[in-house]
């Protein structure tokens, strides 16, 4: 058993101590986690993105055009200045504009047309009929421009039941996911650390 595994096991137990009640061991572990996570994130962003995408092209390769996104990026820090903070919106607007521009065709293609196309199923199977009914009724449930009365109301109500089935399935899978995480940690404590299991 190496020292790293023991350190990891002690910290794991410090986090689990929260199950009894909030305590200083848990708090130390929690804040240490925050600190190292942010430190990791900072280093990774600088070394794997800012360096190769900005510093090396500008300072090593002399590609001065990269100064433009560099300056725009630096403008973000103006949000710390009361007087100059409006200028921090310029790079933000660029990112949001680009994101919106590329999102329209992407969502249109992948989520609207493709998903609608695949719903056009032959009505020769009970499952197909249920799929069509569920898609239409869920859309009716989310259609708020008309009061949920009469046919719209009935459709919306059916949509709610289909949504409940979806939420139920997702809950089932969520339980599975959380249990898997616990299994992973127990395999670590009992196997890697204590060597009780293989």
């Amino acid at each position: 058993m190496d020292i790293g595994t023991t350190v990891a096991a002690i910290l794991t137990l410090a986090i689990y101590s929260f199950l009894y009640r909030d305590n200083p061991f848990y708090k130390v572990a929690e804040h240490l986690l925050l600190g190292v996570s942010v430190g990791y994130f900072l280093v990774t962003t600088i070394v794997t993105t800012i360096m190769p995408k900005l510093f090396i092209p500008v300072f090593a390769n002399g590609e001065l055009s990269y100064l433009v996104p560099g300056i725009l990026g630096a403008l973000m820090f103006l949000r710390f200045s009361r007087k100059l903070s409006p200028y921090s919106r310029i790079p933000l607007a660029l990112i949001i504009g680009v994101g919106s521009g590329v999102a329209i065709p992407a969502y249109m293609q992948a989520q609207l047309i493709a998903q609608l196309k695949t719903t056009m199923l032959p009505l020769d199977d009970i499952s197909n009929i249920i799929i069509i009914a569920a898609v239409v009724s869920v859309l009716m449930y989310f259609y708020f421009s008309r009061e949920h009365k009469g046919l719209t109301g009935a459709g919306a109500k059916a949509g709610m039941y289909f949504l409940m089935v979806f939420f139920g399935s997702t809950f089932g899978y969520t339980v599975m996911a959380r249990v898997s995480l616990l299994i992973g940690r127990m395999q670590f404590l009992l196997g890697d650390w204590l060597g009780i299991i293989k």
Partner: peptide
């Protein structure tokens, strides 16, 4: 049923995003 309900949500999200 679960897949179809999720599809309805996706179509709604797509319309909203666009």
């Amino acid at each position: 049923p679960s897949m179809a309900a999720r599809r309805g949500i996706y179509i709604g999200i797509a319309l909203g995003t666009i």
